[in-house]
Amino acid sequence: MNQFDKAGIPAVLVTAIPSLAESLGVNRIVEGAAVTHPTGAPELPPAEEATYRAKLFELAVNCLGISVSGPTIFTLDGPTQ
């Protein structure tokens, strides 16, 4: 991840373990659904699942444009720190 930032390409990581990504110095982190399926929520009914995923992806796109100063975790409830 850090290799992208180093090359001047802003990158966001969608992961279910944001704290690990944070400790590794990843700058933009979006909290994903689960370790086994970061961008899907199979336990939800299909309609809700599609909404969840759409929001998650939108969040990932949006935070690429947000300026951060260091590792920052974005969740669907808003950024923490």
Binding site: A7, G8, A11, G32, T39, V61
Partner: peptide, 20 residues
């Protein structure tokens, strides 16, 4: 580094990555 170099050369501006 290798993926970043390729993306840079290909003119990619941003990355969304997923991890387990």
């Amino acid at each position: 580094d290798e993926i970043a170099a390729e993306l840079h050369n290909a003119g990619v501006h941003a990355v969304i990555a997923t991890s387990t």
